[in-house]
């Protein structure tokens, strides 16, 4: 599966309140959350983002709250992946768990302009800036995390584990 979309560029320390403000958390419907996604950082984002687009950001993306509504909102508005210099740990786990692709790659951040076309080969973790032709390799995941991604997120992963343990009984 190949990903290709336009880059939306943000800086360092994009917190979860920027991704989805607290007063919207009485729902977890991704389509509903999507309407307000990134509202604090760029109020035009939700109206303009297209399916398959990619967020490219600096360090500590997703810092702050543990709200899973943040990656759900991004997924809900069609964001295919987030590439960042680094991720806050809870956001990183949440994204992996719900099947939102996340790539740690400071070089890609430094060498991407807003609107550049970004292509990602998820199998190899290779990020290509189609606009400039530059290619980058994202940090690899630990084997256990790669396993969760391969399973399609934590739900099928736990489902398989539960199935295995009930079969063993």
């Amino acid at each position: 599966m190949q990903i290709q979309g336009r880059a939306w560029k943000f800086g360092d320390d994009v917190d979860t309140d920027l991704i989805i403000p607290g007063h919207y958390l009485t729902t977890h419907d991704p389509a509903e959350l999507a309407k307000h996604c990134m509202e604090g950082a760029d109020p035009t984002f939700a109206g303009k983002v297209q399916k398959g687009d990619v967020i490219v950001a600096g360090d500590n993306f997703g810092c702050g709250s543990s709200r899973e509504h943040a990656p759900l909102a991004l997924k809900g508005c069609g964001v295919a992946a987030v590439i960042a210099g680094s991720f806050a740990r809870i956001f990183f786990r949440n994204a992996i768990n719900i099947g939102l692709l996340v790539y740690e790659c400071p070089e890609a951040y430094q060498n991407t302009n807003p609107g550049d076309v970004i292509a990602i080969d998820p199998e190899r973790g290779v990020i290509k800036n189609v606009t400039t032709g530059a290619e980058f390799k994202a940090a690899t995941y630990p084997p256990l995390v790669a396993g969760i991604i391969q399973a399609g997120g934590l739900v099928p992963y736990v489902r398989a584990k539960l199935g295995a343990s009930s079969a063993a009984e």
């Binding site: 543990s66 709200r67 899973e68 934590l154």
Partner: peptide, 14 residues
């Protein structure tokens, strides 16, 4: 430490 909902659900199950 803190986690999100899906991690928590997995931990409640397992």
């Amino acid at each position: 430490t803190g986690v999100g909902s899906t991690d928590l659900a997995g931990a409640m199950a397992l």
